Amino acid sequence: MKAAWYERTGAAPDVLSFGEMPTPAAGPGEVRVRLEASGVNPADAGRRSGSYRAMEYPRVIPNSDGAGIVDQLGAGVTRLSVGQRVWLFNGQRNGRAFGTAAEYIALAEHLVTPLPNDVSFAAGATLGIPCMTSWCCLFGDGPIAGRTVLVTGGAGAVGHYAVQLAKWGGARVIATVSSQMKAEQARLASADLVVNYRTEDVVAKTMAFTAQRGVDRVVDVDFGGNIETTLKLMAMNSTIAVYATNGNRNPVVPIRTLMERCIALRTLVLPALPPPLLAAAQADISKWLAAGTRIHNIAGQFALSETTQAHLAVEKGDKLGTVIVDCAR
């Protein structure tokens, strides 16, 4: 099969190679997927660059998320069938060196979910890290119906899904953004209130919207960078769900303030979450997809041989949505 890979970490043009590799076979409990699309997320680029962690395997095929068609079943697989359209997550994670920047991937059946016929493969490849993370941030502690949720970075890959899922879950949703264009994206996702944090007072707008009560839950793209503002708008007995903290990776956390207002911190990375929670996310996302038309933001598409350019597009930092590698071209 054709694939992109790296054998040392570093800049994408320096370390990524493209060529032929052996096609994997589905082992017991696994399915093999003929990949149509691969999602490139910041974590994939971070692992390749070496900024996340040291090289874990002698050779790595990057990218965790993907979508395609099941073309081989391993022994014991009963939930999926050959020819079925699917999306998948945690491809290059949890002991698997070979991810989705390839024509094929073999992985455990429980990481693979049916993809509706009306959702494109490119859109399906955005459902892994972005959509699964947003679901776990929102619903990891139970229902949110009737609650007020604030999504920081409401036009981002995770944030845009978080706005849509929170509305579907019955919450009132506030989204923060950094530009007028991103504000329009958050409104398209059905945010009830959109605040441009560069030009507006996030705390004042949020407290007015909640009648001075504050928000019940924050889905936070930058915990360390936002903490000073975030703590001013939290309600009593609320939760901050943290999936990134690039603005300040080692923030000072005023624990006494959190204690006195019973503010809980839920920190998460998708590969470390318990399987029952991930299974619940997959099931709920399937229901959400079936319940109406959804917005899947695709920031750009590249051929498999252009995986280097796809990683550079993610690292540029101005994408709106998920960068996709088209594995079949």
Rank of each mutant, 00 (worst) to 15 (best):
residue 69 I to T: 13
residue 70 V to R: 10
residue 73 L to M: 05
residue 73 L to Y: 04
residue 75 A to Q: 11
residue 76 G to Y: 13
residue 76 G to N: 07
residue 83 G to D: 03
residue 83 G to N: 07
residue 84 Q to A: 12
residue 91 G to A: 15
residue 91 G to P: 11
residue 93 R to I: 08
residue 93 R to D: 09
residue 94 N to A: 00
residue 98 F to H: 15
residue 100 T to K: 06
residue 102 A to I: 12
residue 108 A to M: 08
residue 111 L to N: 12
residue 112 V to Y: 07
residue 119 V to R: 06
residue 119 V to I: 14
residue 123 A to S: 13
residue 126 T to S: 05
residue 126 T to P: 09
residue 127 L to N: 11
residue 128 G to K: 13
residue 128 G to L: 00
residue 129 I to C: 02
residue 132 M to P: 03
residue 137 C to T: 04
residue 139 F to L: 09
residue 140 G to F: 00
residue 140 G to S: 13
residue 146 G to C: 07
residue 146 G to I: 02
residue 146 G to M: 15
residue 147 R to P: 09
residue 148 T to S: 14
residue 149 V to Y: 06
residue 150 L to A: 15
residue 154 G to C: 06
residue 154 G to P: 05
residue 155 A to V: 08
residue 155 A to I: 08
residue 155 A to S: 03
residue 156 G to E: 01
residue 156 G to T: 04
residue 156 G to S: 10
residue 158 V to F: 06
residue 158 V to M: 05
residue 160 H to G: 01
residue 161 Y to D: 07
residue 162 A to G: 08
residue 162 A to N: 00
residue 164 Q to E: 02
residue 166 A to R: 10
residue 171 A to D: 12
residue 172 R to S: 08
residue 172 R to M: 09
residue 173 V to T: 09
residue 175 A to S: 12
residue 176 T to H: 04
residue 178 S to N: 01
residue 181 M to T: 13
residue 187 R to K: 15
residue 187 R to C: 14
residue 188 L to K: 12
residue 189 A to N: 14
residue 190 S to V: 08
residue 191 A to N: 02
residue 191 A to K: 03
residue 194 V to R: 06
residue 198 R to M: 08
residue 198 R to F: 13
residue 199 T to V: 15
